[in-house]
Simulated assay, not measured.
Amino acid sequence: MAKANDKDRIKKHVNIVNRRASFEYQFLVKYTAGIMLKGTEIKAIREGNVTMSDAFCTFHNNGLWLHNMHIAKFTEGTYNNHEPVRERKLLLNKRELVQLEKKSHEQGLTIIPIRVFISERGFAKVEIALARGKKLFDKREDIKAKDQKRELDRGGY
């Protein structure tokens, strides 16, 4: 019985999306990066226990680092359990890192994570985007378009 519950808890296809990011930012370029994890973090990701609404990326120590992504502690982790909020290094090609670093120094651009998923090979990946913050009127237009689409879907037109 316990084994059946374990299989239900751990998902094969993990796709955790940062919905707030698409509302707050306009995405210019998207990249897929690997992420360096410790110990029980991959098990917690496979359970779907990730929150990344306030997450962002910065460059330091010759690499791209992910900040404020909360990976909840693994339920069966003992003293080996990981720290929920810590800096995690993102893995990209040297060419992509150079491009991102040049672009991120421009005024008004930032790097934010969009989604966390498990690749076909079983590795945890993070989709990041070079983004520009939306103005208030852009957000209003997005809300207006979303409401219009919802009304059309309801009406069956």
Rank of each mutant, 00 (worst) to 15 (best):
N49S: 14
I10S: 10
I35D: 03
R140H: 05
A2Y: 07
I143N: 09
N62T: 04
F123A: 08
I143E: 12
G63T: 04
K139E: 12
E41H: 08
L100F: 10
T78P: 01
V116T: 06
I16V: 14
G156K: 06
F59T: 01
I35T: 03
L37V: 04
K30H: 13
G77N: 06
E76R: 03
F27I: 12
K89V: 00
A2G: 15
E120D: 10
A72H: 15
G48Q: 02
H60T: 11
I114W: 02
N15P: 04
E120Q: 09
D8L: 11
E47P: 03
H13K: 07
D54F: 08
F23M: 13
E120P: 02
I71Y: 06
K102A: 07
H67T: 08
L92C: 06
K94F: 09
R132F: 04
K135D: 11
E141M: 14
E83D: 10
H67V: 11
Q26C: 11
V85R: 04
I128A: 11
Y31S: 05
D8H: 04
T32L: 08
N93E: 13
A145K: 15
N68Y: 06
K3N: 07
E120N: 08
L37H: 01
V50M: 01
K134T: 07
F123N: 10
N80R: 09
H67W: 11
Q148Y: 11
N68Q: 09
E76Y: 09
